[in-house]
Design a protein around this nucleic acid. Structure first.
Length: 462
RNA sequence: UCCUCCUUAGCUCAGUUGGUUAGAGCACAUGACUGUUAAUCAUGGGGUCCUUGGUUCAAGCCCAAGAGGGGGAGCCA
């Protein structure tokens, strides 16, 4: 007989038939006459109840059916006699596929702290919480591809190993096959990277944007969705050393098009979660964050507040609240400033644009005022910056000059500059941190709990 | 990296002014119970009080250093 998934059985109206289920035991309870086994197979957060009568199953035969054990069970799917579920399985046969010593199995019926579960990342997907998070992670990844495919964007695979260190987005992980204890040296005593695998120094990517622009200047609209690496010594609830980033890039788009795209995209993703992850969202709402569903609904129903950086500075300066860091035009906004704007002043997502050029990246399009660039940050409640983007500088001379001013190695960016030399066009794009999106849609408080195997300083255990 | 808090049973935590035998709930084991819903009830086993050093007649508790973890900040997505 073919295995049925628990999700399908709980949704079916065809009862009084024989079924086979396989999954992991969550709890067993009962008395000497009957045992009730709650079984979960990951297809849904809900369990199916197996009913094992003592006539068919001796106490001994159920000895290995304990919390955490993996079993296959066959029997008749029937309308439940008890309350709390509509159907259950009157079991005829149980096979223990893998026992789990109840003295040693770390997961129990009752709740565990998220900190403890982080130490057993190989078992935490079997909890309600991580089952919900991982199913939602899949749903969100699928929704990303669906949105862009439906809107005429092409998925482009940008390289994970990069020879450019000019992206300026933080510390990078080096990729090398040289012997770390005894690397080849040049005459001046420095490591000779011409002997390395690629003949030059290489690193793991911190962004696919520059290569994404290459593709956008041929295919029109593209997006990347891949792993991204930052070797910063960041120890926060919002940073990982290895995370996934989505970077759309659009030819013939300006900053307004960019804002429109980012807002529509985020709303689509949240709407997709609301429509397709109901059970998991309800669980997370009940267990972790009673405002989660309200907040998600609010985001899809209200337009984001669009605001000039200069206006934001004025709002912050006239705010009654005292800030730890002083506010002055030309300084970057601190977390406390972003939180004030989003959570206190506007009480909705905010898109901040036109930042001072000296606090933003070299590739952003310069405004006529000579002071600001067409940058855009989307700020979300509780998370801060969820998207960062800009219109790109498409003028060769202005871009080359900016590269010089900022002391970036021009020779490594020759191909990026040539995009402006041959058939240049206005274009814009942005980057969405996938795990920050996951924080928002799940209501989880720590980014280490929305990725199956988190990578952060001093931690790569699993 | 900085600030701050925490570390006691498998898990979550209590532990008074430093005082003699370190507790609870859950989990686990045994038993009871004719349909349970994180089942319930009874009984029982279970401890490197993070590590090292110090103060003291006496340290889970006070002091110092270290390790691990949480939260906040910086950097950013």
């Amino acid at each position: 007989m073919k295995r049925s998934k628990v999700a399908a059985l709980l949704a079916t109206t065809e009862i009084d038939r024989e079924v086979l289920v396989k999954g992991w035991v969550r709890t067993k309870r009962g008395n000497k006459f009957v045992s009730f086994i709650a079984l979960n197979d990951g297809s849904t957060i809900n369990n199916i109840q197996l009913v094992a009568d003592a006539e068919k199953f001796s106490e001994d035969s159920l000895r290995e059916v304990t919390t955490g054990a993996c079993i296959a069970a066959s029997g008749i799917l029937v309308a439940s006699q008890g309350k709390g579920q509509t159907v259950e399985i009157q079991v005829n046969n149980i096979e223990v596929l893998g026992a789990a010593d109840p003295e040693k199995y770390p997961l129990q019926k009752k709740g565990h702290s998220l900190e403890f579960l982080r130490e057993i990342a190989h078992l935490r997907p079997r909890t309600n919480t991580f089952g919900a998070v991982l199913r939602m992670r899949h749903a969100m990844a699928f929704a990303v591809h669906k949105y862009f495919n439906d809107h005429g964007f092409y998925y482009v695979h940008t390289p994970i190993i990069t020879g450019s260190d000019a992206e300026g987005a933080g510390q990078m992980f080096q990729v090398t096959t040289l012997d770390p204890a005894n690397p080849p040296k040049t005459e001046t005593g420095e490591v000779d990277y011409t002997e390395d695998f690629f003949g030059k120094q290489t690193n793991l990517t911190v962004s696919g944007q520059l290569e994404g622009e290459v593709a956008a200047m041929a295919l029109g609209q593209i997006y990347t969705f891949g792993p991204t690496f930052r070797a910063e010594n960041s120890n926060t609830t919002r940073h990982l050393a290895e995370f996934w980033m989505i970077e759309p890039e659009m030819a013939f788009a300006d900053l307004t098009d960019n804002m429109d795209s980012a807002e529509e995209f985020l709303k689509f993703l949240v709407m997709y979660a609301l429509n397709n992850c109901k059970d998991d969202l309800q669980f997370l709402n009940d267990m972790y964050d009673k405002e989660l569903l309200n907040r998600l609904n609010f985001v899809v129903q209200n337009s984001f507040q669009r605001l000039e950086y200069t206006e934001a500075i004025e709002i912050l300066k006239s705010a009654k609240q005292k800030f730890e860091f002083p506010v002055e035009w030309g300084t970057d906004l601190q977390s406390e400033h972003e939180r004030y704007l989003v959570e206190k002043h506007f009480k909705k997502p905010v898109i901040l644009i036109n930042y001072p050029k000296h606090i933003k990246a070299f590739y952003m399009k310069q405004n006529e005022d000579g002071k600001t660039v067409r940058a855009m940050d989307v700020l979300f409640p509780g998370i801060g910056e969820i998207i960062g983007g800009s219109q790109r500088e498409e003028n060769y001379e202005k871009l080359a000059q900016r590269i010089q001013e900022m002391g970036i190695h021009e020779e490594e960016l020759w191909w990026y500059l040539e995009l402006r030399k041959f058939g240049t066009a206005p274009h814009a794009g942005y980057g969405l941190g996938f795990e920050r999106l996951m924080l928002f849609v799940t209501g989880m408080g720590n980014i280490r709990d929305v990725i199956p195997f988190p990578r952060f300083p001093k931690s790569a255990e699993f």
